[in-house]
Write a protein that binds this DNA or RNA. Structure first.
Lengths: 401, 401
DNA sequence: ATGTCGGCCTGTCGCCGACAA
DNA sequence: TTGTCGGCGACAGGCCGACAT
């Protein structure tokens, strides 16, 4: 008998700007459960130190050149003006373009001065799960080899894929799925074999090689209301960014980060940052409420805590426990009073498989035994008061130097 | 008969750091005849506006957001500390990493105060041609198709390629050639056919697809003393940088450029820039002597001039003539007295094929009728005196704002 | 239910000289 | 001298059910 061949005529969608909820859900599925991105209207703290760390991680080299002191506060209260979720063209690495507006007014400790959660702030901003069905599958060696196609788990094929054309000899149908760039991929979905199984054949290997998928990576499908499909990818091991193009020096980038934040604060204008959750060692834009909630707790030496990590093998997040062994500022000259990764910690588990950071920020851990802070004592400490919400946010912003 | 197969076992060289003269020559061959890069020790003028234009061209979008006035001079006299010639990993686009040290002392008009050409400055810094033989060939459709190999012009094969192993049935030999990344490519050089001709067969198509070569691109071979070979590429049409990875926003990059230059001047320290001749519309690091020579000429309205361009079809540089139709500052608020592309010009030829810029800088053109400037009159002009070498270079560097 | 494999067909790659410009 | 082409052999891509887990 004659085998049918199919062509892959992927093309860019013409309505690129229209990014619906399904796109957002796909983006979050590709980013993973631990990635948190604020939404427009949220109140957040922006940590320049974390932003600098992302650039260092991206440039893949430590930029330890002397930097001027910009007199930037270590955390900057901002309103999120605009968020755009995107993916890198060549690697499909997810990133978010976030436009921030610094809050010019510093606020005191009286409740009515603080921004209330009502005005757009939300502690758990994960988008509400629509009833759009989706599934993901870890790719097997057979899935990614050139020898054959993609084996679709039966239940997921029944739920998420359009119904097959039963008139064809082996039931089959062409799938069209958009990726995060709006590019359309075409696959031949067929139900055949003995025993019967669902397969993606034509078009699949093109997808694998274009996305540079290997066994262990996650492939994600989403289906919307009117049968439109989305497809995305989450890699098991993120490729190291050795392809960092050389536009400006790492040193200049650091200057640029500090200067644009400083400029935005000084003039009350917006500035734009790129958050790359798979490049950054830690998020540098933290929800106001999350920060405030963690500020209530006491993280003194000896405190036991847990922290979530991306599961290496199982691709599921898992928790690891540890103990706070020290509290100190990383760079007390440049960033006085900074809480950015101010906790030195010791991990319980033999950290053979995962390399975990030796320093974490208070808001990125969960305390096991909740100890509330005694505020009255804190005010007499000489140490920087990391989590005192009554402290002015911008102590000495404009200073000639 | 049996056909021999060959493997391409390219690997990175272990002595990456050792970049000899041949590497430099290869880099310049790939960059093209119009690309000029200073050498360590040279005295140059750095034009921040040109640097900003390069970033704009790279980001492929105009960044017209308001920028603070950094009170940077429009041209900054620098000493070149270090130059590294490199190529982009994925595209092979050549670029230079240049470390500059601002000259802190402003100098008057007396000759002994000016830096003399003796201290390392050279007007024509093209490396002295060694007698290493080389050749380049524009690739034909047959060369780049998957149907066959690469046809080597006979004379060049005789001159530049190692002698063939005549004992083999058709004379043949394996070539090993390093590219700008130190990666070794292996080709089968064979002399066969009726009539006899030199061909590169095995390994060639891998090279073509890896470098993404198309018909019309230039392929360049160099041979050094001890038979080591180098291979490089110059594209007919430079690929547009749509792959610009999003690390920091274009606005922040502009901040970074200005801030790092300002910081370097203020503290007397070095700063590093990347010069991408195929991205930039115009070079923004100009030799001191070249600038000074052009400053002697008069480029008033009506002046006839010529300018070199990269030949579109013949891949050779060609000249186009034009007339100066205006002299004005692009941005007199941010860059007072700037000469960067201050000449509005009208081109003679029907500019159908080439899109030439409507604004050029005085030092990038050659006047046809040399008119020397009358300095005494110039001093009475109200307009910015673009080319007055007696003006202080850093008029008001530190100003609080 | 689905991962891997042998079987086998087929399209493309790429080496060859013929031929012509 | 060298660009293009027809010829053709080798090989990898990729669709199929068998079989095992």
């Amino acid at each position: 008998f004659k085998r049918s061949r199919c062509l892959n005529d992927g093309f860019h969608s013409n309505n690129q700007g229209e990014k619906d909820d399904l796109y957002t859900e796909l983006w979050h599925a590709c980013a993973g459960p631990l990635v948190n991105v604020p939404r427009a209207g949220d109140k957040v703290f922006y940590f320049p130190q974390g932003h600098m760390e992302q650039v260092e991680a991206y440039a893949n080299k430590e930029v330890t050149v002397e930097m001027p002191i910009y007199n930037l506060p270590s955390k900057i209260l901002c309103k999120v003006v605009y968020v755009q979720l995107k993916a890198e063209a060549y690697t499909d690495e997810v990133f978010a373009q976030i436009t921030l507006l610094p809050e010019v007014k510093s606020f005191g400790s009286s409740p009515q001065d603080r921004p209330s959660p009502e005005d757009g702030t939300s502690l758990y901003p994960s988008p509400q799960k629509s009833n759009a069905c989706s599934f993901s599958k870890r790719l097997t060696p057979s899935d990614t080899s050139t020898h054959g196609g993609f084996s679709v788990p039966k239940r997921h094929a029944d739920e998420c894929f359009p119904s097959l054309d039963m008139s064809q000899k082996p039931p089959a149908k062409e799938l069209v799925a958009k990726d995060l760039h709006g590019f359309e991929w075409r696959f031949r979905h067929i139900y055949r074999g003995q025993p019967k199984r669902h397969l993606l054949t034509c078009g699949w290997s093109t997808f694998v090689s274009a996305k540079k998928l290997v066994a262990g990576d996650l492939c994600i499908f989403f289906r919307g209301e009117n049968e439109e499909l989305y497809v995305g990818v989450r890699r098991a091991t993120q490729p190291q960014n050795n392809t960092s193009t050389s536009v400006i020096s790492g040193h200049s980038m650091q200057h640029g980060i500090l200067a644009s934040a400083f400029h935005a604060i000084s003039t009350g204008t917006m500035f734009t940052v790129y958050y790359r959750p798979w490049t950054s060692p830690a998020a540098f834009i933290i929800h106001y409420d999350l920060y405030m909630k963690s500020a209530e707790n006491d993280y003194s030496v000896g405190t036991r805590f847990r922290m979530q990590f991306e599961g290496g093998e199982e691709q599921r997040s898992s928790r690891f426990a540890g103990t706070v062994v020290g509290i100190e500022n990383i760079d007390c000259i440049r960033w006085p009073g900074s809480e950015w990764r101010c906790l030195k910690v010791k991990w319980d588990a033999p950290s053979g498989t995962h390399v975990r950071r030796e320093r974490v920020s208070p808001w990125s851990i969960e305390s096991i035994e909740v100890k509330k802070k005694n505020t009255s004592i804190l005010h007499h400490q000489k140490k920087p008061r990391p989590s005192d919400p009554s402290a002015p946010v911008f102590p000495d912003l404009i200073r000639d130097g």
